[in-house]
Design a protein around this nucleic acid. Sequence first.
DNA 1: TAGATTGTTAATCGATTAACAATC
DNA 2: TAGATTGTTAATCGATTAACAATC
Lengths: 212, 212
Amino acid sequence: MNKISKAVIARLPRYYRYLDELRQQKIERISSKELSELMNVTASQIRQDLNNFGGFGQQGYGYNVQYLYDEIGKLLGLGIRHKMVIVGAGNLGQAIANYGNFKNRGFEITALFDKNPELIGKKTAGGEIKDISEIYSYVKENDIEIVALTLPKGPAKEIGEKLVECGVKAFWNFAHTDLKFSSDVIVENVHLSESLMKLTYRISEKNQKSKQ
Amino acid sequence: MNKISKAVIARLPRYYRYLDELRQQKIERISSKELSELMNVTASQIRQDLNNFGGFGQQGYGYNVQYLYDEIGKLLGLGIRHKMVIVGAGNLGQAIANYGNFKNRGFEITALFDKNPELIGKKTAGGEIKDISEIYSYVKENDIEIVALTLPKGPAKEIGEKLVECGVKAFWNFAHTDLKFSSDVIVENVHLSESLMKLTYRISEKNQKSKQ
DNA sequence: TAGATTGTTAATCGATTAACAATC
DNA sequence: TAGATTGTTAATCGATTAACAATC
């Protein structure tokens, strides 16, 4: 398989979401043209994107919604269980723990960790909040695959490094910094404030235009 | 000013973050080469990006950190106050309300809204949680610029549409759907689950490789 | 079979990188 | 002035779109 570009990968979850909706509406088949109109992209792009992974469609017919949905799900690694814990049990950490859809998609959040004694012991939808000092033995004993970092950048870096030593290979990082570990460790960043700045850029751009 | 590409705009907040750190370290000047090594991009890209907005540097010297930081801040619309409210006062809404850095950057969160009677009346760092029914008069009376939508997609769409009628021109959307209003309404999406799927894609890609 | 629509190649477009003259 | 480094043009690379033969 050739190297798939980042742009293509970033579009897969969106395809997956639209296909899920079609599936729920009991729509059986869809052509790249119809899907392109729904999603506001070109049909050509859809066909090119999907063909990176092999032929999911059929000439003269289009794509079977359920089949394509399942295949994209597999590509996205949603066919298997993912054990995850959350470091930092503040609002953001708890928001993720409580987000029901993750469970349906094979994500198993088994614990949250925090240093705040007031939070420790509290039960959430993502399991109990435990003392941060327990996390290192916990991830080893429970084969944790993904660690979500929902805490400030200082401790995120420090705890992240220790977790890498414990064998963690994937981080979902919400801390306001670019974490970089050894090359076999995957880090996916979510920088909420940068998203908000993109919004204010566009507001400010619009205001400038209307002034002219 | 020519149309700036989305890719350039998306990089601005990251420049801003690195410059902020340099500034805090009392570093006065930096060349595109040095910055490129720090940020893991090419010096050429930095110069190209910045030159979309005019010459911020000086030949033979480089860039003044504080000046460049300020200018990018202005480009990002951070020079002015932004009045924001949050719809959906669950964990995610409260996480945003409590995120201190927003206040420092000119964001003024004045209220949260929810339909849950148990939450209404509660005080948070982003102001009081009010009844969702009050939001329409509130945004009109208080000149709210940005509405963060931290609630499920069904109500997000419905409430968003009503808010557009009340004059709201910018949404920071966390609901799991692509909201689309009239063309002068700005929507910036944060799809957390799509970010997580990108992570699992990469995990699954890595596992495939190691099998071969 | 005829019509529809994919899979795939070719053409275009845009973004990134390289190179260097301008200039501090 | 000489050295450094930008601003900017040109070259390259990659991604998107268009076109159409293959085929269901």
